[in-house]
Design a protein around this nucleic acid. Structure first.
Length: 579
DNA sequence: GCCGTTTTCGGCCCGACTGTTTTCAGTCG
């Protein structure tokens, strides 16, 4: 097969477009909702091309024959008849109108039918000309709302990366802690599920002074607008359009509240559907026994899952792709924890493109309590500014050992060596043999064909001195990464005893969780690394662990949870086997 | 459109807030 025309994210986006246009066209509720559910499943599924090849599409929850056919058509043609048909009726710019906060399907439909408003520009004209005022339920405030929505739409940035969102969440939590008394206070939503990007920030709080907490929240100096303010709930916008929602309830329902607002939407729908079959109605206010009318309140999330008779599901697994069934069977894996980590294999100092000195990096790794870590500068193919030649590598080795001993941490000599376009490495085997452990990464010729990249990565795995493939897909922020035959490379990594990295650098988070979940099925070993380019970025290892958890990994599957001797054995075994 | 420990039909999660209303539709998460 050649290149796929659309990847998971693009197919999911098109399914969501179908969903919206179907609703506009007046299709039945559960028909268009099926497309929304399918989109969510595709976002969280393994690579589409591999799923289609294995005929596994209909195994995904919410995807039957009809939608599977649509997905295959999208993958093959980059387009499908259903969407083309719907697009005849509504121009693509209608999504601009729907993107304006406060305008939903009903309003957009009315505006389109009555005034032909089909784009943001049309909407602006209509607002300025005052023609909206005649519509039912369209008073002064509603028009003002739309005006504000238009401004927000224009100034809005894309989804916020996980790392940046966590910093903002910590800021607002710190602010709230200084306000009226609260019992428990934390972030929930996609942030707690550790999604790679988040659309908004959800804060949950318990307090017996809800009104005072809400009032304090909306007066935060970083709030640019207050979107909603009720007795238990408020929403604000920050500069750039990031929305923060706060919900305040009594402490007796903290478990229900946290479970509800952690989501995901799809997870909660499935959980509640299952609960209904057991005669229970689940919401943030508690669990209602329909037969007796008795309400069960839960102080912890564990109590919520226990009340529905299933195993506790960690937030990172709540994506609605089958975890409910596994939890009912009590077969969820014991996920890796941050405390399981004994070291970090991937970091840079000023010897290559890092910002902190070698000694600072080693001291900082020691301060984190690691048993071991490795310094992994770039190889010389990165150029004289960022890469190191073999003489510099040897000069650094003496320093690495000196500082490591001084700071009482086992510091391994490593390198992040470029995998060249033909799959050979940027250092000769004799130079590679001098390192304690080697990361191989692709940084160049990203535009090779799928076939070339597959061969390149497999050849790197087959090199006896390459122990870890760094940031395997090359994804960065909005770049989805170069495409290769994932299954073939995962199989090669497992066969050769080569670990695949889950890189925790903000913007990378690579391998992405759905691919790591796929790789796990091949028996691959993983590493969770910071890829720190400054001492403060060593904390990015936390992000890597969160992605490993989303992939359902246990500590046994992650190399840097093992002891120093076990890591050395992992390296030696490959050298003996393949040298 | 999908799904099944009521399995090929008849269901399909739950609630808060807003604005324009005198009881609720629309939006959002």
């Amino acid at each position: 097969m050649g290149q796929t025309l659309l990847g998971n994210d693009q197919v999911a986006k098109k399914l969501n477009q179908i969903r919206t246009l179907m609703e506009l066209a007046g299709e039945p509720f559960y028909k268009f909702m099926a497309y929304e559910r399918a989109a969510s499943a595709i976002e969280n599924a393994g690579p589409l091309k591999e799923l289609i090849a294995a005929d596994e599409l209909v195994k995904l929850p919410g995807i039957g024959k009809s939608i599977a056919a649509t997905i295959m058509e999208l993958c093959e043609r980059g387009q499908c008849g259903l969407l083309e048909e719907l697009s005849q009726r509504f121009p693509p710019t209608i999504f601009e109108v729907l993107g304006v906060s406060g305008i939903g399907i009903k309003t957009a439909g009315t505006l389109f039918e009555q005034f032909g408003i089909a784009s943001l520009a049309d909407l602006e004209h209509a607002v300025e000309s005052g023609m909206l005022a005649g519509l039912p339920r369209m008073g002064k405030k509603s028009v003002e709302n739309i005006k504000r929505g238009i401004l927000a739409y224009k100034g809005r940035q894309n989804r916020t990366p996980l790392g940046a969102a966590l910093r903002i969440a910590r800021d607002v939590l710190a602010y709230l802690k200084d306000g009226p008394p609260t019992d428990r206070l934390t972030y929930a939503g996609s942030l707690r599920r550790a999604e790679v990007t988040v659309g908004d920030i959800d804060i949950v709080c318990t307090s017996d002074q809800a009104a005072a907490v809400i009032d304090y929240f909306v007066r935060w100096k970083r709030a640019q607008a207050v979107l909603a303010e009720g007795p238990t709930k408020a929403s604000i916008w920050l500069e750039g359009g990031l929305q923060i929602d706060l919900r305040v309830l009594p402490d007796a329902v903290y478990g229900n509240l946290l479970q509800h607002f952690t989501g995901s939407r799809e997870h909660n729908i499935q959980l509640r559907e299952y609960a209904v079959r057991k005669g229970l109605r689940v919401s943030e206010n508690g669990i209602l026994e329909l037969e007796t009318g008795r309400s069960i309140t839960c102080r912890t999330e564990e109590e919520v899952y226990a009340a529905i008779d299933m195993q506790y599901i960690p937030p990172e697994l709540r994506s609605g792709i089958g975890e409910i069934d596994v939890a009912r069977a009590r077969s969820l894996p014991a996920l890796i924890e941050r405390d399981d980590i004994r070291g970090d294999f991937h970091m840079h100092s000023t010897w290559s493109d890092g910002r902190d000195t070698l000694e600072t990096m080693i001291a900082s790794a020691a301060a984190l309590g690691y048993e071991y870590h490795s310094i992994s500068e770039h190889s010389w193919g990165r150029g004289p500014k960022y890469g190191m030649n073999p003489e510099q590598v040897r000069a650094q080795r003496a320093k690495v050992h000196e500082y490591g001993e001084k700071l009482s941490i086992r510091t391994l000599c490593s390198s992040e060596v470029d995998i060249l376009p033909d799959g050979s490495m940027d250092y000769s085997d004799s130079v590679l043999a001098e390192f304690d452990i080697v990361i191989g990464s692709i940084h160049s010729a990203l535009n090779q064909t799928r076939d070339e990249l597959t061969k390149r990565l497999i050849r790197a795995c087959e090199n006896p001195y390459v122990n870890i493939i760094g940031h395997p897909t090359g994804r960065y922020d909005t770049f989805n990464g170069y495409e290769f035959d994932y299954d073939a490379v995962f199989a090669a990594a497992a066969r050769t005893g080569t670990a695949l990295e889950i890189d925790g650098q903000e913007g990378r988070l690579d391998l992405p969780a759905p691919l790591a979940r796929r790789a796990k099925e091949f028996g691959v070993t993983f590493t969770t690394d910071s890829d720190a380019h400054a001492a403060a970025q060593l904390a990015n290892l936390d992000l890597a662990v969160s992605q490993a958890r989303r992939a359902g990994l246990t500590k046994e599957q992650v190399l840097n949870t093992r002891t120093f001797d076990e890591v050395k054995m992992f390296v030696e075994r490959k050298r003996r086997r393949t040298a």
